[in-house]
Design a protein around this nucleic acid. Structure first.
Lengths: 348, 348
DNA sequence: GTGAAAGCGCTAACAA
DNA sequence: TTGTTAGCGCTTTCAC
């Protein structure tokens, strides 16, 4: 089951088998020899030992991916996108879920380093300040996914938060809403910060009266968090529309409405952000800003790969300069903004 | 950054550092030496190279996990459960999504073997017949998760499909339904097969008339599949209740109802299976059989670990005999069966 | 309690 | 076109 057995069966040295395996056009191995080796591999069911290989050539062919959670539907989509491209490139992804715990984050990053990952895709920015630069110093390529780091120049692939927020706001104003509030997410998350900022500047630019705007922040961007904050919002004001920082929060708002007997969109319009899978289930039909999640995952994976290959090609081992890509965010109009017939909800 | 540097800084041989790292009570290393080594490790930020380690002691500390999809909400929950226990045991999980492709399955399994995984958790049973035994012959411990294999005795951790189906059916009959149909999933998936079988025997045992039962099979256990089949169902009969083989199919049925203006649960009661996260979102509130997904994931992970350790301890390298655990499945009553007030749906 | 030495399975010069 | 020879970084007998 090792390369030695294969070599023995094929009647060649193990170096030749190794060259055959590399099968780049770098090494020339005779057609006849190739056939014998192929037969031996087939016969033995040989699979090269990735550890030995990696140890020898210092390439683990592995990329670490840290996400905050597997349960938030945003991340599995992101992961699917990453897998799409990593698989094809012959790289293995190792996923870790930090669950918002600094301890887990350290464990995950440590495990990435032990496994000698060539790059990391971070959808959760480590809380610990030095973690990012430590990674870079350890020669691992890092790209930040749907999150930016405050004091660190890394590759990022993001969605256009400001643009998305503006289209949502434009749309809602088109419906004639007088009081559009924003249910913001935790501000330390860059994306949520950006969305809140965009809300503020929009309201400012448009000269909307203080009295007909409002921004309340949830401490967790979850359905439960959204429901709690919705309650708080109506305790302190009376919006006709709420745009939430993500779909889960929006769902929470809808949950609250259901509980207190408010009709969506008649009594309150709700708009989400991200367009996660749940947004389009029958009873939900949430109008939301498309976060192009899978695409973001794909681009991010492409980006690390690009960096990894670049470093490998330039034998001086230099990294590419940091680059940021921002995907446009379009509004997906469904039923909760007041556009639809509302049929799919009314019928239930 | 290697063990040699640490040894040099601590003024010991690398064998001693290695013994320190093992930190089992197998090796005795003097307190004073430990301290010096600890300091050196700290100073250098040393992380042991998992490849070198694994190559040397033939333990990858890795478990492969194959799921059919990241997008179906069932699997991320399962993955979360597996992570819970693997993390704690110091094992790394490598997830692969097969997307129902035999080619991907082979790639994933091959990649697992190359990475020398000590065990695999299979939530998707490989289509290729020999794959399972090949794994076993390669000395990897396999456990089947929420799926059983037809001609292969492997560890399995399953939900009680029959029991779950019965409680759902009992409940629905309690509501006085006369025509309860089953929207089955693809029959080659063991779980779906079991659920359909349970439906049939129940109807049989209870002596339900042929005319007031019906079973139609979807070719894909997705929301879209459910919607399509719902259409077919009403073309050929008129059930008052449908129990779907999983929640996604149930959602599809609700989608269909919304489209054609049928009210759930008034015109049609719908019951799902699995209790995925979406079942409890505001506009859905699906009555469903709890699949205890996360628990299943945890148990499965515990089970491989147990097998792996057992093999390791018994130095003859023997595997444990196959064992099967079945978790009870209870009905979670929400609004789609006709029990609830229906408030949360009506209000939207 | 600690070190020397061999070897895990593979790759990568360098020779031939 | 193929083989020889060193390692990659670590663990693990076996001596000391």
């Amino acid at each position: 089951m090792t390369i030695n057995e294969v070599a023995a069966v094929a009647g060649v040295s193990r170096a030749t088998v190794s060259k055959y395996m590399a099968d780049a056009d770098v090494y020339y191995v005779a057609e006849a020899t190739r056939a014998r080796i192929a037969a031996a591999i087939e016969e033995l069911g040989y699979e090269p030992n990735a550890m030995a290989r990696g140890l020898s050539n210092r390439r683990s062919k592995t990329i670490g991916v840290m996400v905050p959670s597997f349960l938030n539907p945003y991340y599995p989509s992101l992961m699917a996108g990453m897998s799409d491209v990593a698989d094809e490139a012959g790289y293995t992804l190792v996923f870790g879920s930090s669950d918002d715990s600094a301890v887990r984050e350290k464990q995950i990053i440590s495990s990435f380093r032990q496994r000698q990952v060539e790059g990391v895709l971070l959808a959760a920015v480590p809380k610990e300040a030095g973690a990012l630069s430590a990674l870079v110093e350890a020669d691992v390529e890092v790209v930040l996914v749907s999150r930016a780091a405050a004091h660190f120049a890394a590759d990022t692939v993001l969605i256009d938060d400001a643009g998305g927020m503006r289209s949502a706001l434009d749309h809602l104003r088109g419906h004639g809403h007088s009081a559009i509030w924003h249910l913001a997410g935790p501000d330390q998350v860059g994306t949520f910060h950006n969305r809140a900022e965009a809300y503020r500047s929009y309201m400012d630019e448009q000269g909307v009266a203080e009295s007909s705007q409002g921004l309340v922040q949830a401490d967790h961007a979850t359905m439960e968090g959204g429901e709690r904050v919705a309650e708080a919002i109506f305790a302190e004001g009376s919006p006709t529309a709420i745009i939430a920082a993500n779909d889960l929060l929006a769902l929470g708002v809808m949950n609250y409405c259901a509980r207190v007997g408010k009709k969506v969109p008649e009594d309150l319009a709700v708009v989400g952000f991200d367009n996660v899978w749940v947004s389009r289930v029958p009873g939900v039909q949430l109008t939301t800003v498309d976060g192009r999640i899978r695409e973001i995952g794909q681009m991010a994976a492409r980006r690390v790969l690009e960096r990894i290959l670049a470093r490998w090609d330039s034998d001086n081992g230099q990294s590419l300069p940091a680059k940021s890509v921002i995907l446009p965010a379009d509004l997906v109009v469904r039923n909760t903004c007041g556009c639809g017939s509302g049929a799919s909800q009314a019928s239930q």
